[in-house]
Design a protein around this nucleic acid. Structure first.
Lengths: 228, 228
DNA sequence: ATTACTATCTCACGAGTAC
DNA sequence: TGTACTCGTGAGATAGTAA
């Protein structure tokens, strides 16, 4: 990535911040050391090495030095900054789950069609989902773990309710893209009926049909997240 | 600046580039080591330490691991990237010279009013400068050094010429701001009459009067440079 | 006050290897 | 194939100090 020593990055950054790009800046090794959280001796060595490698120029002025960053030094910093920035920006802004469809669409479907929930679906989503959930068995532990991370992200909250006999937990819905084409909602439940490795999806229409899926099919679910 | 170890920056950047921000990414310590130009053992240790410090999360999958960068790890990278980027951008885009006016405005003035030069001033600048140069004695060695750097920057080239008896060298003019208010031109000569530590300035009008300067006054000259 | 040498120490790295 | 020990080496850090 760079022939600039890693330990010198902070030092060069500090010089840059001091404005040493086009003008020679008077600086002492002790103040520089303080700023990079190293000793005076370390700062001195850094300057010596950076000079040796052509990343900076120094001119002596009696006892003190003035330092300027060279074209080469500047280019190197730009390179690092660009690489960092682009890897931060190129990060996909979704969480992806991979798994296989499992046939049973029992329990979930029953609960999701209860009036206490459908009322809220209508008002918060604008429609009542297709009566039935699509269940996906996650392929890998990592997806189970990723599921937990959903908590901290934005979702549509469907509140729990009581029908007099018992209470029903909340449901949180996340916009999801199935196989990168069909829209649906991934739901997480306050009280889970299945084990952790199973994902439940609901949708406006019958997802299975819309995405031409059958039992056992492999499936990808992407939940967009704001990159914060 | 950060409690993230410097040597871990590249490792985190590599994970970031692999897309480990929102999703767990399967990665082997040997491939990671290769990418950060370190050994498998070093990569292993980096992951161990990054995990310890809460910058990444890992989940084991048999023999392999999947890795994801945490909020904390991501924030740290954003911080570094921001600091770098802003110090690169906040660099002033001028070279500044500080010095004192010296009275003698002899030689330079004579040469600059020669027809071979004034012809070109008229065509390349649009005007003939005030007949007289302002001479500035630089306060510090570092400004003398900085003067040399001017060569690589943009300037208006006034070609040398011959009047039959002798030849006269070229003159390069740089836009300059005196005391951050009055415009002028800093000139460098192919053949210098003074020593290196003296700067010569010319202008449309009498700079001394315009900037209310007298012999001995301290003066600042800024030459804008493209930041490349 | 400076810078930077020498000596010392710490800890990051890689080699070898266990699991 | 994997990860991650232990251990030897040396780069890079600090302390002390000369100039």
């Amino acid at each position: 990535m760079s022939d600039l020593k890693v330990q010198h990055i902070l030092t060069l950054a500090e010089l840059l911040a001091k404005g040493a790009r086009h003008n020679f800046v008077s600086i002492t090794t002790s103040s520089l050391g303080k700023n990079i959280h190293r000793s005076q001796q370390a700062a001195s060595k850094h300057l010596l090495e950076l000079e040796q490698d052509g990343y900076i120029e120094r001119i002596r002025n009696g006892q003190k030095f003035s330092v300027r960053i060279t074209q080469k030094g500047h280019a190197e910093m730009v390179k690092i900054s660009t690489v960092l920035k682009s890897s931060l920006e190129s990060a996909p802004s979704y969480i992806e789950f991979m798994g296989n469809i499992i046939s049973g669409m029992g329990e979930g479907a029953y609960y999701m069609s209860m009036k206490g929930y459908t009322k809220q679906f209508k008002s918060k989503l604008g429609y009542i989902p297709f009566p039935g959930t699509l269940n996906v068995k996650l392929k890998d532990k990592k997806f189970v773990e990723a599921k937990r991370e959903l908590d901290v992200h934005e979702g549509i909250m469907i509140d729990g309710f009581s029908d007099g006999k018992r209470t029903y937990g909340w449901v949180k819905c996340y916009q999801a893209k199935i196989n990168n084409s069909v829209d649906g909602l991934l739901i997480t439940l306050e009280r889970t009926h299945y084990d952790d490795s199973i994902l439940e999806l609901i949708s406006h229409t019958n997802i299975k049909k819309a995405a031409k899926l059958s039992g056992g099919s492999q499936i990808s679910i992407r939940v967009p997240v704001s990159s914060k």
